[in-house]
């Protein structure tokens, strides 16, 4: 695996983790997710909205999340995403992998926790 491939995998894995974690709190629509990632990392995770939708659709395909159209009075209908039970499990395992990974980096390379 070249360094680019590693970066891509890391990025992809982290994107999934971020999305799952955000909709764990409550059901959200796409723009909401993009906005929150930007806000909460204060722009530190430069996250391209473009990769958001392919990721959402991929997660949906894997049955980790579920999208559905919700109509509210006086608004256009919006597609909200929510976590499936499988998604909840995947989130937990993502979290533990990342914690383990960061700890390993820490031990080996002295990378400090953010």
């Amino acid at each position: 695996m070249g360094i680019n491939a590693l970066a891509r995998e890391l990025k992809r894995g982290s994107t999934e983790l971020l999305i799952l974690a955000l909709i764990e709190e409550r059901d959200r629509h796409g723009y909401d997710i993009a906005r929150l990632i930007d806000e909460r990392s204060s722009g530190a995770i430069s996250f391209h909205a473009a990769s958001l939708y392919p990721t959402l659709y991929r997660l949906e395909h894997k049955d980790l999340i579920e999208g559905r159209w919700v109509e509210k009075a006086g608004q256009r209908r919006r597609r909200y995403y929510r976590l499936t039970p499988a998604g909840r499990k995947a989130l937990a395992s993502h979290r533990s992998i990342w914690i383990g990974f960061i700890e390993a980096l820490n031990r080996v390379a002295g990378v400090k926790h953010a």
Binding site: H29, G30, Y31, Y57, R79
Partner: peptide, 8 residues
């Protein structure tokens, strides 16, 4: 998808 992107 178009609808979703349009809203975004």
């Amino acid at each position: 998808v178009i609808e979703e992107l349009a809203q975004h």
